[in-house]
């Protein structure tokens, strides 16, 4: 690792001042589980590492029935998945965050970092996308909100400018008759990177026999986490039955643009898109029905 300076600002203002002055040579660190590895292999070589863990706004974790869930960008995964409101209202976030790395990684890593690292395989991003989450991005004097579905722009790249930082991720309050779910395929039982990951969100009508809205997002099958809007369009207003869910799986397969690599061939990944999408939608439906 080349020499790097380290700052640990204790206020958002001082963090933003640092970024205004030298954002182009600064990397922001939360849990450090990705950035420290990148520094060590020199795929990132910033002059300054800015530790964001002591900034109060980035440590917020709060839930409100009207405004939903606010996840500070530096909240570690173990705090998120142990939170009673997250467990009750956002089980898909628990699905995602309990399978990122192992226990020591979850003690450090953050959803904010997972988003900003912008890996196509990130396990938390599809869930955030299907839940309709937005990212609050701050620079000196300016706050902007970006839907998580538009946050990533390529493998490891995103909409953040050098003078900006992610402050919170905001997830809408859960609607009645709705639930979400995330699952991935890995050849091992744990500690692996998704061959394919699928997040789904389903909202049914009051009698539970028609889809009102459905979102599906895929990991590891495109340069960015993929938001499969074709499924949302197709399933909206349709009956809940195997045939329609089968078609959703087919649409996921058609939307995916996977590559072949050591984790799986493109063909295998497309097959998995279809299988996992069907399973995940069914799991979301089970959650709505309390099964």
């Amino acid at each position: 690792m080349k020499y790097v300076d380290y700052e640990r600002p204790t206020s958002l203002k001082s963090a933003l001042d640092i970024l205004s002055e030298k954002g182009d040579v600064t990397k922001i660190m939360a849990g450090g589980t990705d950035i420290l590895v990148k520094l060590r292999v020199r795929s990132e070589q910033p002059d300054l590492l800015m530790d964001s863990k002591e900034i109060p706004e980035l440590n917020e974790l709060s839930f409100n029935h009207d405004t939903g869930l606010t996840i500070g960008a530096a909240v570690p995964l173990y705090k998120l998945y142990a939170d009673a409101d997250v467990k009750k209202y956002y089980p898909a976030l628990v699905d995602s965050t309990t399978i990122i790395g192992g226990i020591p990684i979850q003690g450090r890593a953050t959803v904010g970092g997972n988003l900003c690292n912008s890996a196509p395989s990130a396990d938390s991003i599809p869930t955030l996308i299907v839940l309709g989450a937005t990212a609050s991005i701050q620079s000196s004097g300016k706050l902007r909100e970006v839907p998580v579905s538009e946050f990533c722009t390529g493998p490891g790249s995103n909409v953040l400018k050098s003078n900006e930082m992610l402050v919170t991720i905001n997830v809408p309050a859960p609607a009645d008759n709705s639930a979400a779910h995330y699952m991935r395929f890995i050849p091992r039982n744990e500690m692996d990177i998704a061959v394919v990951g699928v997040g789904s969100y389903v909202k049914l009508n009051a009698s539970g026999d028609k889809f009102e809205s459905v979102n599906v997002s895929l990991a590891s099958v495109a340069p960015t986490p993929l938001n499969v809007t074709e499924i949302s369009k197709f399933l909206s207003g349709k009956d809940v039955n195997d045939e329609n869910i089968e078609k959703a799986g087919q649409l996921a397969k058609e939307a995916s643009k996977p590559i072949s690599d050591m984790r799986g061939t493109a063909e295998y990944r497309q097959h998995l898109c279809s299988v996992l999408t069907k399973r995940s939608i069914n799991k979301s439906i089970e959650r709505i029905k309390g099964a």
Binding site: Y6, R8, G31, G32, K53, P104, I105, R108
Partner: peptide
């Protein structure tokens, strides 16, 4: 491994297990 995979460097930091290769000394 020095990249967080193997756990040989596990320590307890403020009550949580962490891999000490993925923590900076200054932290």
């Amino acid at each position: 491994c020095n990249d967080g995979n193997c756990g040989a460097c596990t320590v307890i930091l403020e009550g949580r297990t962490v891999t000490s290769c993925l923590v900076l000394g200054v932290e």
